[in-house]
Every structure is written in structure tokens, then in C-alpha cells.
């Protein structure tokens, strides 16, 4: 993954756990389970961290939800469309940086 994201330390709280990466780094077709949602996307957001966290939660990005990357945009493979449980949601990779996912089979 050659993403131009500066990952801050808050980013990957699951740390050493295997197969856990930010959703921001996922490619098309990857599946997994959300292990942590924070408000820290690693980029400058117009909203405070807690607000971003709440918005993500309200769209169904909660710990334990299954996730699959369905589509990617053309430029910089951004934004991405994901299936969260049974809802389809589009979001940018920068906000996806606030979501840590344990991906299958990696």
C-alpha cells in the first residue's frame, strides 16, 4: 500500500495484533471485522475527533461490525464504498483512517 497518509500513533491502537490495519489501507474485496473506531483519522478534519467518532458510529461503523470494501474511486483509489453489516456506505480514505479492521486471512 503506498497511501499518502501520515499515520499518527493513535491510529492503530490494536498495535501488534496480526491482521489489524486501518480501513484506509484496505483494497477492493478485502473483508474483516471492525475492532476499533476512534475519532483520529490522522488528517486535519473540520470536525473534532469526538464528532468524527460519533458520525462514524451513527453510520454503523461500530466495533464488531463486519466490513467489506466494495468499490474504489479512480483517482488515488479514493473514496471507497464499503459494506458495513448490510448497509453500503461511501467514505474517504482519510476518514477510514479512524477505523481499525481485523482483516480475514492475512
Amino acid at each position: 500500500m503506498s497511501e499518502a497518509f501520515v499515520l499518527s500513533p493513535e491510529f492503530n491502537p490494536a498495535g501488534t495484533a496480526t491482521g489489524v490495519r486501518p480501513l484506509a489501507s484496505a483494497g477492493r474485496g478485502e473483508r474483516g471485522v471492525i475492532v476499533k473506531v476512534t475519532g483520529h483519522s490522522g488528517a486535519a478534519e473540520a470536525v473534532v475527533a469526538e464528532e468524527l467518532e460519533r458520525r462514524l458510529l451513527e453510520m454503523g461503523f461500530v466495533e464488531g461490525a463486519s466490513i467489506e470494501v466494495l468499490h474504489e474511486g479512480l483517482f488515488g483509489r479514493d473514496p471507497i464504498a464499503v459494506r458495513v453489516d448490510d448497509t453500503r456506505v461511501a467514505l474517504r480514505r482519510r476518514e477510514a483512517g479512524a477505523i481499525s479492521v481485523k482483516f480475514d486471512g492475512r
Binding site: 486535519a44 478534519e45 473514496p79 464504498a81 448497509t87 453500503r88
Partner: peptide, 11 residues
């Protein structure tokens, strides 16, 4: 700087 998050349901 600050960029508004983009998040929307694809119905």
C-alpha cells in the same frame, strides 16, 4: 486545512 468528512449511504 480542515476538510469536512464525506460519508454517505449508498441506497
Amino acid at each position: 486545512g480542515a476538510v469536512e468528512p464525506f460519508m454517505m449511504e449508498l441506497p
